[in-house]
Amino acid sequence: SPRFLALCPTSISSSTGSGSDPVQMGEEQCARSALREGFLRALVAMTNKPVQFDMYERVKVHATFGSSDIDVLNFQVSDLHTPIGVQKEALLRCQDVILYSFDL
């Protein structure tokens, strides 16, 4: 998959670069898992919360967060307040977004 190709060189270079060090590779996998799990938990915490999205071109919108795909390419949101009105159900492209924020 594209996602694997994007991530793979990291693990390949660390496993071949230092003479196939399985310890280092294990450490890297461990680090990646911890980081990824934290991120997924943050996304879960965002579910059904009001979220503000700061997008490119200084566009700011807010909406109720629904879900995201696993590659975080799209955010599915409800009640999206845009400068030109409210859209009941919407998808935001992650590539349009610089920052998203919410309160716990």
């Binding site: 071109e57 629904g66 599915q76 919407a90 590539q95 349009d96």
Partner: peptide, 16 residues
């Protein structure tokens, strides 16, 4: 959620 709510992209054209 996408099947049920049929969300449309906003904005229609990507900003970036």
């Amino acid at each position: 959620n996408c099947d049920r709510k049929q969300p449309k992209y906003w904005p229609v054209i990507p900003l970036k």
